[in-house]
Amino acid sequence: MTKRLTILLILTITFFSCKKEVKNENQKLNVVTTTSMITDLVKNIGGDMIEVKGLMGSGVDPHLYKASEGDVNKLVTADIIFYNGLHLEGKLVEVFEKMESQDVKTIPVGESLEKNTLIGSDYFASNYDPHIWFSIKNWKIVTESVIKELSIIDPKNAEVFKTNGKTYLSKLNDLEIKLKEIISTLPKEKRILVTAHDAFSYFGKAYDFNVVGLQGLSTATEAGVQDVQKLANFIIEKEVKAIFVESSVPKRTIEALQAAVKSKDHQVTIGGTLYSDALGNPGTVEGTYIGMFEYNVNTITNALK
């Protein structure tokens, strides 16, 4: 965070600490979220009872995201903030730490998961893979956590949150069944998923895919020439038919990998664009968590068959 933004944050916090008042019965809960996946989830649970302001839109990379002046205003006036945690929003950590000293409740949804269910990593700041939403089992637990936290801070609407949550959990159960049916059409030996960065390990664990990312868990990690050549050899050896671009990562990394394979007299196609760290555009099917997940699975299975 820049020095100017740090000063702004301190001044804004000081101002709103003096001005903040208890909400009356007719005011909605003011909720701020970080990633589009969390925004979609919170909207499904809160419905018309809350006002949700998401910081990150379609195609935004949370690993590299920096708080703007507008973000600071949203954060300090929030009643509750939901963020992923596990160092996904690495450049916002300092902001969240400052929020903790104010009358703003900050909830890292990743901490609702048992540590033994997380995928470890020696190459990421938290030592855990933060891409927890690619396990529907994880997302159900996160959903329960959001229901609980909203009910605590806004008890008068607790029953609404529980009802909405029950409906959403049922949709997640249906999604899980549907995805397994789609993936079952792809032979296990073809379940090799090569993407721009290592965002799909939870997906791979859930659906028996060998997942390989050109970059590491964080897109802040650059892939070198040796990384590209090594993965190109892997693709040739395993006869991988298609590799995938990600909507929140520049496509040049995967295009470089495709070129490296071609230089060795082999061919691999780009099977499509997957949504990894952000959902699609608002108003589209891919702009929802459920729609994004189904789209990704269809794209992967169709390209690898």
Rank of each mutant, 00 (worst) to 15 (best):
F161P: 12
S121L: 10
K140M: 15
V104R: 01
L92Y: 09
G120N: 09
I136A: 02
V142L: 08
A125P: 06
M99T: 10
Y123P: 06
V95E: 02
E144P: 09
H87V: 05
A158S: 14
A158Q: 15
D154H: 11
Q102R: 13
N138R: 00
G110V: 02
N116L: 00
I147P: 06
L92W: 11
T143A: 00
K156H: 12
A158G: 14
W139I: 06
D122N: 08
I107E: 02
V93G: 06
M99P: 01
K98M: 15
T163A: 14
I136G: 03
I136P: 04
T143Q: 08
S101M: 12
N157Y: 03
Q102T: 15
K148P: 10
M99K: 02
T117F: 02
D129N: 07
N138V: 02
V160Q: 05
F134C: 13
D154Q: 11
W133N: 11
K156F: 08
I107L: 01
L113T: 01
K91T: 11
E149I: 06
K137L: 04
S121N: 03
W133V: 12
L150W: 03
V104E: 00
T106L: 10
K105N: 12
I152L: 12
K156G: 08
L150K: 05
L150R: 11
E89A: 11
M99L: 07
E144M: 13
V109S: 09
W133D: 09
E111S: 07
I152A: 12
I132N: 00
E100W: 01
I147F: 08
E159G: 05
N127Y: 15
K137R: 14
S145N: 14
E97L: 05
L92S: 10
N127R: 15
